[in-house]
Design a protein around this nucleic acid. Sequence first.
RNA 1: GCCCCCGUAGCUCAAUCGGAUAGAGCAACGGACUUCUAAUCCGUAGGUUGCACGUUCAAGUCGUGCCGGGGGUGCCA
Length: 592
Amino acid sequence: MSLQQQLTDLFAPAFAAEGVDPSFGAVAVSQRPELADYQCNGALGAAKAAGRNPRALAEAVLGRVDAPDLIASLDIAGPGFINITVVDAALAAVADSMAGSDRLDVDAVSEPSTVIVDYGGPNMSKALHVGHLRAAIIGESVKRLFRFLGHETIGDIHMGDWGMPMGQLIVELQDRRPELVYFDAGYDVEANGPYPTESPVTLDDLSEMYPVITQRCAEDPEVAERARVATFELQNGRAGYLALWQHFHDVSVTEQRKDFEALGVEFDLWYGESTVRDRLEPMVQRALAAGVARESDGAVVVDVTRPEDKKELPPLLLTRSDGSYLYSTTDLATIEMRVQDMGMDLGLYVVDARQGLHLEQVFRAARIMGILPDDAGVEHIAFGTVNGKDGKPFKTREGGVLRLADLIALVTDAARARLDEANIAEGYPPQEREEIARQVGVAALKFGDLSNHRTSNYIFDLERFSAFEGKTGPYLQYSAVRIKSILRKASDGGLEARDIVAPTVAQERDLMLRLARLPETINRAADLRAPNVLAEYAYEVATDFSRFYEHCHILSEPDSVRQASWLRLVSLTLDVLTRLLDLLGIEIPDRM
RNA sequence: GCCCCCGUAGCUCAAUCGGAUAGAGCAACGGACUUCUAAUCCGUAGGUUGCACGUUCAAGUCGUGCCGGGGGUGCCA
């Protein structure tokens, strides 16, 4: 049990004994570290509810708390804050216990849920660019967090591969290369043999075609109409289009896998909109038959507005007036699949904040249509846009999008350059240097993003992503690497870590106190679905370690009990940093 | 028009669901390397939290209005 929980368990009954709700006994980390380690603000709120004087109530509560082994001192400050200072030996015991625990004393959930994290969501046929960065790394972190807490967690990339862009690309390719057999409606596989196994296009081709056809559709209603028809025909199984679609799919996935791999993002499932294509028609028919969907201007819609809404929500479209499906349809069918086939209890949609209305409509429709049972939840884990310095979505100086692969190369280059400056790296073999450069570059990139609150928009700045000093990913890696180095030398010198004993210097105590907050921090990050909580805490752990490191020279410490305790303490610090960075999706090199 | 999000130090961002004296990094200035990796540490300076009311013991946080920015708003994703 965490230190904070132990303290809360002392205060809750004390408040209850005073006749107020025990939840007022909640203990929190102190906001005034120079005054105390923890604090309890319950007396302020409880006094109001009970019509009593807050300081008097705090006094009464203190009289009921008696734990000399855990609490060194209790004070009442200001209007009724209770300041709590923990016994040094108890602090050491908490750290020692963590050091002996596989899970660092972070409890796994007692009742695991099946959690599906829907993230990444790249459109097929597009090379990944900076816009995909956030979805990928925030989602990856959320997935790892829930998995660590013991939930059955499944990450699904949910590709955009069954909508209008597919029809658009078919039309664009047809206009460029009408001779291809895929466009021959009379082509018969039985008589003429199977379609070619070689793709007629590369992902680069598709990426180039994409903006061209989008532009054409916007300008020419006739082209747009052809794209709609092609989409409809694809969705209804036209063989040549399906064969072509498969090529688009394969070349896309091959390339995108590489980019995600370089980022350390790993999906359990590479499903997409097309995965549920066979569910679309039956689902729509069922909704019509049940009377929850209706026809409107030739389209099929579901009304999702509720009486309490300030403004009427637009109805959700299940089909276009030509009968083709939209991403609303596939999103709903995907929920159906996840509930029926995968036993989803909670769906976390790590999706751009601009999709908020769409997802709200989908979630409501899923309830209305009976697809999503009451005991299952779905949430939009929204994140903000990556903007340029002009406050608009980021574009390169040339006005194009910056490819993810190019961005990774840029930060890796910067890390390699930094490594070249470092004297210590002179002797590293080239291969190791290259691997370190990649790990450090990606760490800078990921931490730079994840340390922002996910909902806020932020300004893309290459300098920030390739900065290695201060509050950065590489600083965290560096802290961990220093510990690894100490542990290696200690091991070489035959030194062994032993029990963590009561702290004797302030920096040592601060570090212990910080480490003791791991369980609450992880749970808070999960509750808020907010990786920046982990990032912030990881940085604090690293700075506390750095101060300790500067102040306490472990290997030359003459007191062997103290030295052995310190070795175990920094070993624990390394484990905590490693766990936190893993939850952020950041790797740690052995040296750097 | 309507709905949602945002506005915090020169810059980029935090702030533990309303708590005490709003914190970091970068940039600036001044210190610390014969000692476990200086990608580090210590110190100085930097604020009317967009503005105005309101709610209460307490407001960056909640409510109302205004100013400014971004996004969304039925057949794109």
